[in-house]
Amino acid sequence: MDGKLAVIGLGSIGSMALWQASNLTDSVTGFEAQSPAHGRSAVGGDTRLFRMIYRGVPDLYPILGRSRDLWGELEAETGQDILIRCGGLSIGTADGPYIRSLLETARANRAAHEILSREEMAERYPQHNLRPDDCAVYDPNAGVLRTDRAVTAAIAAAEANGATVHTNTPIDSITETEDGVVITSGDTSWTFENVIVSSGGWSQRLMPNYLKAATQTKRVFLTWFVAHDAAQFTPEKFPTFNRMYEDRSMYGAPVVDGVTVKATLDGRGAPTPTADSVPRDLTDAEIAETTETVQEFFPGLIPNIVRSDAFPDLYTTDRNPLLGWLSESRRIYCATGFSGGGFKNATGYGHIAAYEALRKQSFTGLEFVRPERFRTSQAKSVSQHSNSNLANPQYAET
């Protein structure tokens, strides 16, 4: 054995799983195909939003709370400022489905929040050009995560705890045996008791068929703008925002580099054949819709995109992650498919993955993220009777 646990892919979730695992054992090794926080991964783009108010599964709220605490622990352990605690706004039509669903989930979870009328919004946050029937839900626990800093800090903390890290080491195959899991990169192989697969958009090629059918790599693009007066868009004056209507949707973050404001169209992830084939340049249609939306929403921003980029992420058909064991022998653990929304919970999900993969603790109430929700009787039959149809037969169930 080369160790108790290998973590394949040290991006948003993998880096946090490595850090959390290193607090439990010094026999953990991380493998990264390129370099940590490289510019083509889903970590790219400087920042991600953290928020405690959202629409959807109520069971997500405890993970958000744990994630918030763990971001603070990572900051304390590494001395890095990672989470800028500036609050967050969700803006929409006062009686529309977006605000209504947000409030339903917030009240079900007893999440701290404040409802701001159009008049209160105009007074407190004049940067927003509001429609007559607008209102907002303010999340006092929201903020901005510095992605590159978070990932590199977590990996450094893991190494300080005794973890081993291999960079520029893409994994070619994963073979489960009765005694462990053999992973190979080129002519080199290692054997571990258990493995976590957390390679984001690159995870699909390592999946069994039933998960390949339930996932798709998508291209997510980001855009930034210069403000007429950057002082009006600092974290102290301009919280993160999510704004949604039937015909317009955008999210963004305050100035963290002293110059640019992130303002990006929401929900525009487009399918791409592979994580390596993501077009970085925006299309004319993407540029036009983005600038038109900024013109409507933010008169204080110059409506010219000064920076843009695009990144891959793995999406599931129900937009919930894949977090759990893949095989009946329970040696290969999946932590991927976060569908463009995983970074805020990266510490929480990394904690769950590390504790479960090392068999230190099992967590309940997570049926909405378990991979087996996508397993069908046909997939079971194929995996049990014929490995020949699997792109990676080593993942066949045993």
Results as ranks from 00 to 15, higher is better:
200 G>R: 08
61 Y>G: 02
358 L>C: 08
388 S>I: 07
162 G>F: 14
338 F>Q: 04
1 M>L: 07
393 P>D: 11
384 Q>Y: 10
185 S>T: 10
386 S>I: 06
373 R>A: 09
240 T>W: 01
307 R>C: 12
227 A>W: 07
197 V>I: 15
197 V>P: 03
276 D>C: 08
85 R>K: 11
327 S>N: 12
216 Q>W: 02
308 S>D: 05
1 M>V: 12
80 Q>F: 05
149 R>C: 15
258 G>V: 14
284 D>G: 06
34 Q>V: 07
139 D>W: 07
7 V>F: 00
257 D>T: 14
96 G>M: 08
377 S>H: 05
59 D>V: 07
187 D>P: 01
115 I>E: 09
212 K>Q: 11
52 M>I: 07
81 D>M: 14
293 T>R: 03
386 S>T: 08
266 D>R: 10
332 I>S: 00
263 A>H: 04
359 R>A: 11
109 N>L: 10
215 T>A: 07
117 S>H: 07
179 D>V: 06
131 R>N: 08
266 D>T: 11
192 F>S: 06
151 V>A: 00
378 Q>W: 11
22 S>L: 05
356 E>I: 11
39 G>W: 04
127 Q>H: 09
40 R>H: 02
395 Y>N: 07
277 S>Y: 13
124 R>S: 10
47 T>K: 03
295 Q>N: 04
275 A>N: 10
352 I>F: 11
115 I>C: 08
157 A>W: 08
232 Q>S: 15
266 D>F: 12
131 R>Y: 12
87 G>C: 06
329 S>V: 13
98 Y>I: 02
334 C>K: 00
299 P>R: 14
254 P>N: 13
53 I>M: 09
95 D>V: 12
244 M>W: 07
294 V>C: 07
72 G>T: 12
326 L>N: 01
130 L>D: 10
396 A>M: 14
349 Y>F: 13
309 D>H: 13
204 Q>R: 11
193 E>N: 09
56 G>C: 08
212 K>G: 09
154 A>P: 05
